[in-house]
């Protein structure tokens, strides 16, 4: 059995852990707090795969049928 990366699956978009520096402009753009972002669980298979910890923000680059590419953010929670 060959191990494959979940991120290679066609229905899993690109996930990246964001640094504080990247996060700030995003939060100020929407003028929200980190806690108001949509969530992703820390036990989620993809969070485990990229090694995200609780409190991190994951940037998701979705392929969108309307916008071509869309960015989405999720806060990692318990």
């Amino acid at each position: 059995m060959t191990k494959f990366s979940l991120l290679d699956h066609e229905s899993v978009p690109k996930h990246e852990i964001m640094s504080e520096g990247e996060l700030k402009p995003v939060l100020s753009k929407y003028s929200i707090e980190k806690e108001q972002l949509p969530k992703i669980k820390v036990q989620d298979p993809v969070s485990k795969e990229i090694g995200a910890a609780v409190g991190d923000v994951v940037k998701i680059t979705r392929k969108s049928q309307t916008a071509g590419e869309a960015e989405y953010y999720r806060l990692v929670i318990e």
Binding site: E10, S11, V46
Partner: peptide, 19 residues
């Protein structure tokens, strides 16, 4: 990378919330 199912809950468990 291309195998899929119509069971959404199963996709959630195996491939995560975005999938």
């Amino acid at each position: 990378t291309r195998t899929s199912t119509n069971n959404i809950n199963e996709i959630y468990e195996v491939l995560g919330v975005e999938a």
